[in-house]
């Protein structure tokens, strides 16, 4: 499988599915620990196919999240393009890491992402916050192998 044809349509489809999973209404207690599916998907694509989406993918997915969440326009866009940048730059190193180390890296990225959101929330006059907002980083790191395996399969990679 030397040459594989990546389709932009497939990427968009997975992004849309992840968006649905990120914003679909859930009961309160599940909602607390809902992993950021869209962020995980963008991270996956930025190490698996950095040429296809790249930082633009991060930026526009973030913008979509902003619109859906009613956040300050550009908040998620900035945070998501920052971690996408790191992943695109280091994609060759990250891709070769064993699963457990990848989980740790993803955990770090999610914490960084949430920290940016946290800072912007404070700056833009949304000072109310709970410790629960950090829970999804842990859940996201734990389910990362599952997400990446599912997305691998969706591209026909084994």
């Amino acid at each position: 499988m030397a040459e594989r044809h990546e389709s932009f349509g497939g990427l968009l489809f997975t992004i849309l599915v992840a968006l649905v999973l990120s914003v679909i209404p859930l009961p309160h207690y599940i909602e607390l620990g809902r992993p950021a599916f869209l962020v995980l998907t963008v991270l996956y694509w930025s190490i698996a196919a950095p040429r296809l989406g790249g930082i633009s993918l991060g930026f526009f997915s973030g913008l979509l999240l902003d619109l859906f969440r009613g956040a300050v326009l550009g908040e998620n866009a900035l945070a998501l393009s920052a971690i996408t940048y790191i992943f695109v730059r280091e994609h060759q190193k990250i891709r070769l890491k064993p699963a457990f180390q990848q989980c740790l890296i993803v955990f770090g990225a999610l914490v960084f992402y949430e920290a940016i959101l946290f800072a912007i929330d404070g700056w833009s006059g949304h000072p109310l916050t709970t410790p629960w907002r950090w829970l999804h980083t842990l859940v996201g790191a734990i389910i990362w192998p599952l997400v990446s395996a599912t997305l691998d399969r969706s591209r026909g990679v084994r």
């Binding site: 499988m1 030397a2 594989r4 190490i47 698996a48 196919a49 950095p50 040429r51 790249g54 930082i55 695109v88 994609h91 060759q92 891709r95 070769l96 064993p98 699963a99 990848q102 192998p145 990446s148 395996a149 691998d152 990679v157």
Partner: peptide
């Protein structure tokens, strides 16, 4: 958990 590292030859972004 392999990301199929060999599949991309020119994977550096534009």
């Amino acid at each position: 958990m392999a990301f199929n590292a060999g599949a991309y030859r020119a994977s550096a972004p534009r």
